[in-house]
Design a protein around this nucleic acid. Structure first.
Length: 130
DNA sequence: CTGATGACGAGCG
DNA sequence: CCGCTCGCCATCA
């Protein structure tokens, strides 16, 4: 079954849990070439034209600068999920960044694993909001 | 089929 | 810290 490139991008984005955010580059890296950073943005822009299909948490995808791309509306949606932004409109990817999909899921979809070994949960953003 | 368009990333000054 | 340039995929009219 040859799914469209955009579909694969959506599938990866659907793995992002609530309260976490992923960057365009991160999604592109998981999908793999020829998907570049731009393509992910294009795919999300195309979402506006897709009136049907499974939901895609597009608001959880932000740029590498830790800033939202679509405007204050997106930031508000994320804040409602527990993501914190500073006065500059930036969020700490160290705390709210998505570690990546689960190994099992990644393997089942032929996605490159985020890291060879599971990273130790040193911090739990949602429980360590201070 | 051709042309226009769209929500980024990294590098450099 | 900010702004500019280049790279380049799929979808729509």
């Amino acid at each position: 079954m040859e799914e469209g490139l955009y579909e694969r991008i959506y599938e990866v984005i659907r793995q992002i849990p609530r309260g976490r955010v992923a960057t365009y580059g991160q999604i592109a890296a998981l999908v793999g070439p020829p998907c570049g950073g731009r393509t992910v943005g294009y795919a999300l822009a195309a979402l506006g034209r897709r009136l049907d299909g499974p939901p895609v948490p597009w608001q959880r995808v932000i740029n590498a600068q830790g800033r939202v791309s679509t405007g204050p509306d997106q930031q508000r949606l994320l804040e409602a999920e527990g993501v914190v932004f500073d006065e500059s409109g930036r969020t700490d990817l160290k705390r709210f960044g998505w570690p990546g999909p689960e190994s099992a899921w990644a393997a089942a979809h032929g996605i490159g694993a985020p890291s060879p070994a599971e990273p130790s949960e040193a911090e739990s953003p949602q429980l360590r909001l201070f």
